[in-house]
């Protein structure tokens, strides 16, 4: 079923296919297991350039696992094995010749709970550029920090207290700080793992707005629990269930006329 999903989608959407941007990341037959538990089964998924791809599905369906495969964050978990291929711009990111540090510099990640480092706001943003040696001097670093904060829509709020602790910000600000931190490394893809689950509605709205703006410069993959959020921010949506990719396609189609009954049930709130 998965094998044909893409063809089916392309065929079904018809005219829209022609306007498809190129594929940025591509997963083929991705299988992931933690010890004896298999978490993902034969997932095939494309992430297209300058689009927001939303991964939805009930808890434990494997969507976060898939997301963490995209920049090999799963490497840090003991006993986790990944099979199949995931490519970034055509290069297999699990190939031994690919360096995980380089990969992560290009595929940034924002996590579920805001996790600013216990350092100042400035140092939080400067951390990535500093370890990668992206700035040659203080002035350049200041500029990177400022643009990143601006892009994350946080600069105006914090410009007077750049040198206070990042942990002192509100939840929404912290999450935008984490996004600014990810942007500062100038990645091509940004992965977001339920970035708004710990935020209140107003902060959520701000972050969603930001995601939409960031799409112009970055490719974004977002895991979300909220149907509305997926509908609001994403262009394409992939539905996961019990470790399998159930359906994938343009967001408006998924939410109006899904092919699979399980997607229908999930979106309408029968389960999840």
């Amino acid at each position: 079923m998965n094998m044909m999903s893409e063809a089916a989608v392309e065929a079904a959407v018809g005219a829209k296919t022609t306007a498809q941007p190129p594929i940025k990341m591509q997963g083929r037959l991705v299988n992931v297991s933690y010890g004896d538990n298999q978490a993902l089964f034969d997932v095939d998924l494309d992430v297209r350039l300058h689009q927001v791809t939303a991964l939805i599905g009930p808890s434990g369906c494997g969507k976060s696992t898939f997301l963490r495969c995209l920049n090999r964050m799963n490497d840090t978990i003991e006993g986790c094995r990944v099979k199949g291929s995931i490519t970034l711009d055509g290069a297999d990111i699990y190939d031994p010749s690919i360096d995980v540090v380089e990969l992560r510099a290009n595929v940034g990640m924002v996590f579920q709970k805001p996790n600013p480092f216990p350092k100042t706001i400035y140092e939080n943003v400067a951390y990535g550029p500093r370890i990668h040696g992206l700035a040659t001097g203080k002035a350049e670093m200041d500029e990177i920090v400022e643009t990143s904060l601006r892009k994350a829509g946080l600069f105006e709020e914090v410009k007077d207290r750049l040198h206070t602790a990042g942990t002192g910000l509100s939840g929404g600000q912290q999450q935008r700080l984490c996004i600014a931190r990810a942007i500062a490394v100038s990645p091509e893809v940004i992965l977001m793992d339920e970035p708004c689950s710990a935020l209140d509605p107003i902060a959520t709205a701000k972050v969603e707005e930001l995601i939409d703006e960031l799409r112009v410069n970055y490719t974004i993959v977002i895991v979300t629990h909220s149907m509305q959020q997926a509908a609001r921010v994403s262009q394409r949506t992939a539905m996961f269930h019990l470790g399998r990719l159930v359906e994938e396609g343009a967001t408006d189609k998924m939410f109006t006329n899904p092919d699979d009954q399980r997607t229908q049930d999930y979106i309408t709130g029968r389960y999840g």
Binding site: V101, G108, N115
Partner: peptide, 15 residues
């Protein structure tokens, strides 16, 4: 030290 700190840093491409 919370795992989130490690993830945050590794996710940025730190060794």
């Amino acid at each position: 030290v919370p795992q989130a700190m490690r993830d945050g840093s590794l996710g940025l491409g730190a060794t």
